[in-house]
């Protein structure tokens, strides 16, 4: 598995939001799903199977890791596993952030030129 964050870019929108959702700390599957919907303002509404397809791929790419929840933290009916960003995952997310910032900056400049 390559450790160069740039080789994972560009991220798809769902992948970006899943990684972003895990940036503050670990979450279980359902919390990720809801967070992705909130972060994307309802645009990315993942189904359960799509979420776990992405989770499986991110685990394989070692961008996230699976953690065993201890019983006390777990609410009723919640899955026993939670997920967290790995160092590589965080670096990929940061690299994507920089890439998107660059795109936005370029777009802003060009649009300003057009407007002027």
């Amino acid at each position: 598995m390559t450790t160069d964050p740039l080789s994972y870019l560009p991220l798809t929108e769902p992948t970006f939001y899943i990684l972003l959702s895990l940036a503050p700390g670990k979450k279980h599957g359902y919390a990720i799903m809801k967070d992705v919907k909130d972060l994307s303002r309802g645009r990315v509404n993942l189904s359960t199977s799509t979420l776990y397809t992405a989770v499986g791929r991110l685990l394989d790419q070692e961008l996230i890791e699976r953690l065993d929840d201890d019983g006390q933290e777990r609410g009723p009916g919640l899955p026993r596993k939670s997920y967290a960003l790995t160092d590589l995952g965080r670096r990929v997310l940061e690299a994507e952030h920089v890439r998107l910032q660059g795109m936005v900056r370029e777009a802003r400049l060009r649009l300003r030129e057009d407007g002027a």
């Binding site: 279980h28 599957g29 359902y30 799903m33 359960t48 009916g77 919640l78 899955p79 026993r80």
Partner: peptide
Amino acid sequence: VYREEFGEELQSVFDLSLD
């Protein structure tokens, strides 16, 4: 193998979504 890895979580998240 996939079911063993994610089956329980898939079911649990689906149940919560449905609730």
